[in-house]
Simulated assay, not measured.
Amino acid sequence: MNLNNAPRADTAAPEELVPSRYAVRIGDIEVLVISDGVLPLPTKMLGHNVDPAVRAAWLDNMFLPADAFDWSLNAVVVRSGDQIILVDAGLGLDPDLNLPRAGQLVRRLAGAGIDLATVTDVILTHMHMDHVGGLLVEGVKERLRPDLRIHVAAAEISFWEAPDFTHVNMPAGFPDALRATAKRFAQEYHSQLRAFDEEREVAPGVVVHRTGGHTPGHSVVRLASGGERLTFAGDAVFTVGFEHPDWYNGFEHDPEEAARVRVRLLTELADTGEQLVATHLPFPSVGRVARDGDAFRWVAAFWDY
């Protein structure tokens, strides 16, 4: 991976209408945000614990459709020293899901000039299917290094042995798909999993830290180099979470704890002024967090051409 070959606002491939990768430098660490596509979901997933009229008013104020809209799916490639780290692996290409605009990560990694065989480490923020599915695409495992290290919280691995879906609010079929994908992933990559308890430095300036909430082992990745910092927040933050951090997302297995995690993280990011990238913020999802009364405000970065 070389930022010289990955301009900040990349020229789209001929079949694409918009760019699908965006480069950022954090000190000596190179970061490439890559879009895995978009996932259409019911708008109820943004805040199933609030009055539908209140949720509808927020959507209208944001010029978003009332019934369903496209969630971005973002992954990150990080180069620190001689390590190339993939943070999350996208949705994959399960034909039973009928999601043709998602699962683009493997193809877009190739388009960015990133050979899967050069990836030394994978960090998983958690084991939902839109974060591990790309590693289950046919032919991918054979292209990965045999000594690839996959870092994931021990609590996450344990959770998916008998997952609890009693507090989620998902469309029909999603719990079964999530359960099956996590089980298959754990079986296929068991020998390459490198579990950690609370925190691990994966490479110089690259630290994965367990937050819990969204899932028991949900983690964020903190990058720091040369006085600059960036956090990849995984699913700790959603579009609505700045103005309404207490709204429950339908995929949260412990929504009360997830809300507490979100407030703590957003408070810290507002205090430090560091950059934020998250899985489901609109691509490329690079920006900062500002305080706005008792809540927060998302300040998207100006694209650097």
Score class of each variant (00 low, 15 high):
128 H>Q: 12
126 H>N: 15
159 F>L: 04
254 D>S: 10
87 V>M: 07
158 S>W: 06
275 Q>H: 09
285 S>V: 01
273 G>T: 03
23 A>P: 07
4 N>T: 12
112 A>T: 00
165 F>W: 15
260 R>Q: 10
137 V>Q: 12
150 I>A: 04
195 A>F: 03
160 W>N: 09
156 E>K: 14
231 T>F: 09
64 L>Y: 11
91 L>D: 09
80 S>N: 03
20 S>M: 04
272 T>E: 05
105 L>Q: 07
32 L>I: 13
11 T>Q: 15
91 L>I: 12
284 P>D: 07
143 R>N: 11
4 N>K: 07
114 I>W: 10
104 Q>E: 14
302 F>D: 04
19 P>H: 09
261 V>H: 00
178 L>E: 14
283 F>Q: 10
44 K>E: 12
9 A>S: 04
293 G>C: 01
129 M>C: 07
7 P>K: 11
50 V>A: 14
284 P>I: 13
11 T>F: 02
170 M>G: 13
47 G>Q: 11
66 A>M: 10
30 E>S: 15
190 H>I: 05
171 P>Y: 02
92 G>E: 06
9 A>D: 03
7 P>D: 09
46 L>G: 07
152 V>L: 06
299 V>P: 00
151 H>K: 04
1 M>D: 04
127 M>K: 08
223 L>P: 03
219 S>H: 00
142 E>V: 01
253 H>M: 15
178 L>V: 08
194 R>W: 03
114 I>A: 11
250 G>A: 10
78 V>P: 06
84 I>L: 15
253 H>L: 15
286 V>M: 01
286 V>P: 02
170 M>L: 15
94 D>P: 02
253 H>F: 13
234 G>C: 11
140 V>L: 00
123 I>W: 04
233 A>Y: 01
133 G>E: 05
266 L>K: 10
278 A>K: 11
200 R>E: 09
233 A>T: 03
284 P>W: 09
198 E>Y: 06
58 W>R: 15
267 T>A: 13
23 A>E: 05
